[in-house]
């Protein structure tokens, strides 16, 4: 697998269009020093004395939103199903009960190719007990953390009728909860069920790969608390980062539901073919 497969529409015309767009926006940026993704103010190290920079090269520099690239890799072989990530996520965002920005599934495969999956309370309570409702000889069993796939061909942003969800130039699929009308079309369109309608705000909500932390040089909360390194995040501009090395290496990376044509930016290491 290559570091990054080109999305299918990147033909010559699209390329030229992109270059033109880029240069036009680029020159506009030189003229107008405006907000909208370029704000730096509170991202300086002085305002965050207790938190050392975890993603190098972000703090104290102008953040060029068009230049940045990040990667998220989930290593299934290292996940122990402790649910720290789920707990951290719930706490970081005060996610309402019964809804999940991220969750951890448990897979059990037997010798008849039967697959048994469960995910009690989204993995928030960890996995304290083996499954008691099935009696099979286990061939393979593993945990699968799930979160937003940050698709490059994004079905959820495509269908949003009002432009309340979008892909940022640095590759994050975010929500504008001030404009969301709460129609739920994005929830239907997401093949991974990463989205939900927040019962408090009545707007759609989703995992952001902790964009607010990343922009301050911090790792996403779930990555930060993962005790085994099953969740890996880093900048692709940083050649020393673990994700860069994994993506540069020969790799056995896969994505979820590849046939959907969504081109996820979330990669899995060690995912069996039953994982969807």
């Amino acid at each position: 697998m290559k570091i990054e497969q080109a999305p299918p529409q990147l033909n010559r015309r699209a390329f030229i269009k992109k270059v033109l767009k880029g240069s036009v926006t680029g020159s506009l940026l030189l003229i107008y020093p405006m907000g909208g993704g370029d704000a730096l103010d509170m991202l300086q190290p002085s305002t965050m004395p207790d938190m050392p920079e975890q993603i190098p090269g972000i703090r104290g520099k102008a953040y060029n939103i068009h230049e940045r690239k990040f990667a998220f890799i989930v290593d299934i072989t290292r996940c122990i199903g402790c649910g720290s990530c789920c707990v951290a996520d719930k706490r970081e965002y005060n996610v309402p009960d019964g809804y999940y920005r991220t969750w951890v599934e448990r897979y059990i495969k037997d010798f008849d190719d039967q697959v048994y999956v469960d995910c009690p309370n989204g993995g928030l309570d960890g996995y304290q007990k083996p499954r008691e409702d099935i009696d099979v000889q286990v061939r393979d069993t593993f945990f699968v953390p799930k979160l937003c796939n940050m698709c490059k061909e994004t079905p959820c942003t495509q269908v949003c009728p009002v432009g309340a969800t979008f892909t940022t130039p640095d590759g994050f699929v975010l929500m504008d909860s001030d404009r969301c009308v709460g129609c739920g079309y994005c929830i239907q369109a997401c093949p991974y069920s990463s989205r939900f309608l927040n019962p408090v705000t009545h707007t759609a909500e989703k995992c952001t790969w902790c964009y607010h932390r990343v922009r301050k040089g911090l790792l996403p909360a779930c990555v930060e608390v993962c005790p085994t390194g099953a969740r890996k995040f880093g900048s692709l501009k940083d050649e020393t980062s673990e994700v860069y090395k994994i993506l540069k290496g020969p790799g056995v990376l896969t994505v979820l539901k590849e046939a959907m044509g969504t081109w996820p930016a979330l990669y899995y290491l060690g995912a069996r073919l039953e994982v969807i």
Partner: peptide
């Protein structure tokens, strides 16, 4: 396994 993704339990 009758596994339903956690966010799919709700009919939106």
């Amino acid at each position: 396994s009758n596994f339903v993704l956690p966010n799919d339990l709700h009919v939106h």
